[in-house]
Amino acid sequence: MGCEDMKDLLALEAGGDAQPDERIAVESHIAVCPECARELTDYRQLRAALAELREGAVPSRTFERIRGQVGSAMKFTIVQRSTASWFVRAAAVLVVGVSVGFSSASIYRQVTQLRPAVEAEDGVADQDLEMEKGASNVSGRPYRTAAGARGFGIISPPSVLDPLRGGFTFRIDRTPEAKVNDSSKDGVYYLPRVESFPDPHEVDF
């Protein structure tokens, strides 16, 4: 193997990266070739110079700042995930609300239409009572009006929605804190609040 072929191997051998057979070739060549021996030494010196860059002084508080910024971004991600899941829940509640309303309206219609017959049998106007019965069946139990009309209230159990929540959660405290919307008569909605995660301004994170 000549000097030209040796050049590539010298670059690898300088860092101990040559294969065993390549190393043997290099060693036997540099034993008789001072030029290549010198080149190998040069490569090794350059490696030593490169190693000087491994670490050094950093501006003060660099790592604190990195942890602080990452901590804030994590907090934001957690809230974002929770908020996304809150919207999914809110949408689900809306769908259920509409379906319950639709179901109730339908029962109301049935009851209203049947009322003369009910009154004829019992002599009592019992519309409110019938409505209450219909509305109380949103959990999925079959119901029957006094006049025998059948129906079925449908609502998804809350547990079905849980898998939609973000999977990587830092013990989010769902105690209502931040009031978002109180204009709706249907209820007041809250954003979940992250309690357990340290505030980057309070804690060194």
């Binding site: 050049k7 590539d8 670059a11 690898l12 990266d17 350059l46 490696r47």
Partner: peptide
């Protein structure tokens, strides 16, 4: 990796 490494060392030198 070995190919790039030997090229990089030669270039650096």
């Amino acid at each position: 990796t070995r190919w790039r490494l030997h090229r990089a060392r030669k270039l650096f030198k």
